[in-house]
């Protein structure tokens, strides 16, 4: 037990939908959501997410969510702000960045 606090950078991949308001993260990849959304919805959704800029390495920040159940959420990506529902946000896998502010 030499390290009381595990290094933050080692935090595992989580879905964008799991983040809280104020959390910052970096996009890792898009999850395969063929099963949860169906083939057609999945591929148009994935394509559009990539077109809007949800590509690996891109920093994102959750800036708002609607109660109850944080659905939909508002996500800042660069100078853009996007509203997406939990099911869409579940398709984006991210890693938390630093301590949540």
């Amino acid at each position: 037990m030499t390290h009381a606090v595990p290094p933050r950078t080692a935090s595992p991949e989580v879905a964008l939908a799991e983040l809280k308001v104020g959390d910052r993260a970096v996009v890792l990849r898009l999850r395969d959501s063929h099963e949860s959304l169906g083939d057609e919805v999945h591929s148009t959704l994935a394509q559009r997410l990539l077109e809007l800029g949800f590509i690996p390495g891109e920093p994102v920040e959750v800036v708002g969510s609607i109660w109850p159940g944080a659905d939909p959420i508002a996500v800042r990506l660069g100078r853009s702000l996007f509203a997406l529902r939990r099911r869409e946000a579940a398709a984006v896998l991210v890693t938390r960045e630093g301590a949540s502010s």
Partner: peptide, 10 residues
């Protein structure tokens, strides 16, 4: 069937 929401807030 379900349809996604991806809305830009300009």
């Amino acid at each position: 069937s379900y349809h996604p929401l991806l809305l830009e807030l300009p």
